[in-house]
Amino acid sequence: MNKVFANAEEAIKDIQSGAVLMLGGFGLCGIPENCIAALVKKGVSNLTCISNNAGVDDFGIGLLLQKKQVKKMIASYVGENAEFERQLLHGEMEVQLIPQGTLATRCLITGYGIPFVPVLAGVGTEVAEGKEVVVRNGHQYLIEDAFDSDYALVKAWKGDTMGNLIVKDTARNFNPMMAMAGKITIAEVEELVQPGELDPNFVHVPGIYVHRIFQGTNYEKRIEQRTVRKPE
C-alpha cells in the first residue's frame, strides 16, 4: 500500500476537465492550497466545485475562478468574491446555494454510506423547490441526497503515510466529512509522519478514507479578517 505522493502535481495528475471536486475549508481557513495551485497550473476546466465558500478574488477557489476553470459552484456562501459575482451575473458560471448545515450533513452521510437524509432547513424557501418532502409527526422535511463527487481535496495539520489525519483548530470545518465523502480523497498535510507517530486516540480521519497523501509546501494560510484586541 503506497498512498504517499511527492507533491500536489503528482497527487492530482489524473484529475480531468469536467471533474466533480469537493474542497475542504471555511473561508480561507483549512483550504487545500497546494491542490488548488496544482489545478490552476494543470489548467483543467469545466470543474464542478463543492465547497462552503468560493475563496476571495485572488486566493483559494478564487484562483480557479480567475482562470475560468469552474463551470459550477456548489456552496453555502459566496459573498467575498467580486469575480464570482461577475461571472454569475453574466451567466458564465452556474451556482447552487445550499444551507451550510445541509451541505455539511450531505458530506457526512456520503462518508457514512447513507443515501439521503431528511432536513428541516429550507422548508418553505427557494431551497425546497423541486425537492421531495416527507412529513413526520406533523413536521415537513426536505429529502437531501448524498454527494456523488469524483475527488475530495482536503487539508489537514498532520497525517501519516497510512492516510490517518489530524486537523487543527477551526481548520477542521468541512475537511473530515469531505475526506470521508470522496471517491478518491487527496489529503495535503503540513507535516507527514511515519505510522506510529500519531496517537490513534486523536486521529480525526481514519486512513481508510484517504487514498493519496502528500506533504504540502509554502503554505500562505492567508487570514481573511485579521481582528485583534488592544493590549490590556
Binding site: S76, G101, T102, L120, A121, V127
Partner: peptide, 13 residues
Amino acid sequence: VKGMGGAMDLVAA
C-alpha cells in the same frame, strides 16, 4: 446573491 450560509439551518432549528 451571497448565499444563506448557516442562516437557514439556524432559523429552522
